[in-house]
Simulated scan of single mutants.
Amino acid sequence: MPFIEIKVRKQIDSTLAKKIINKDCVSAVLTTGKITGPAKDLFRENDIAYAENVPEKLFMESEAQEEG
């Protein structure tokens, strides 16, 4: 079953991108930090959508809505 990988970190580089790709079930990656150019290339080559610089506040608000 495909899932979305969420990372709260400063940067996703090609080494981490390869680890995510090797899981064989990630359809998208969201991160609060940056994604390097080579990592973006790897995600594109493997049909994995990505979003970078997602504010942590959005996750916190979403979590509060789910619980409330």
Rank of each mutant, 00 (worst) to 15 (best):
M1F: 05
M1Y: 04
M1P: 12
P2H: 07
P2E: 13
F3A: 09
F3P: 03
F3W: 07
F3R: 14
F3T: 11
E5Y: 00
E5P: 00
E5T: 01
E5M: 05
I6M: 08
K7Q: 03
K7P: 01
K7L: 09
K10N: 11
Q11S: 10
I12A: 02
I12V: 06
I12L: 05
D13T: 04
T15G: 04
L16W: 05
L16F: 06
L16Q: 08
A17F: 00
A17G: 02
A17Q: 00
I20M: 03
I20R: 00
I21F: 01
I21P: 01
N22K: 04
K23L: 09
K23C: 01
K23R: 13
D24P: 00
D24I: 02
C25Q: 12
C25K: 11
C25G: 09
C25L: 09
V26M: 00
V26I: 08
A28E: 11
V29L: 08
V29Y: 02
V29R: 02
V29C: 03
L30Y: 04
L30V: 07
T31G: 01
T31E: 00
T32A: 09
G33W: 07
G33Y: 07
G33E: 08
K34Q: 12
K34C: 09
K34H: 15
I35N: 09
T36E: 06
T36Y: 04
G37P: 09
G37N: 15
G37F: 13
G37R: 13
A39C: 06
A39Q: 05
A39T: 03
K40H: 03
K40P: 06
K40M: 11
D41H: 06
D41S: 09
L42Y: 03
F43A: 10
F43V: 06
R44I: 12
R44S: 09
E45M: 10
N46Q: 11
N46G: 08
D47F: 08
I48F: 04
I48G: 01
A49G: 07
Y50P: 04
Y50C: 08
A51K: 14
E52C: 07
E52F: 03
N53A: 10
N53K: 14
N53I: 01
N53L: 10
N53Q: 14
V54H: 06
V54G: 04
V54A: 06
P55N: 08
P55F: 12
E56M: 13
E56P: 10
E56V: 11
K57S: 15
K57T: 14
L58V: 11
L58D: 12
F59K: 05
F59N: 10
M60E: 10
E61R: 11
E61K: 11
S62A: 15
S62H: 10
E63D: 09
Q65E: 15
Q65Y: 13
E66F: 15
E67F: 13
G68N: 13
G68L: 14
G68W: 07
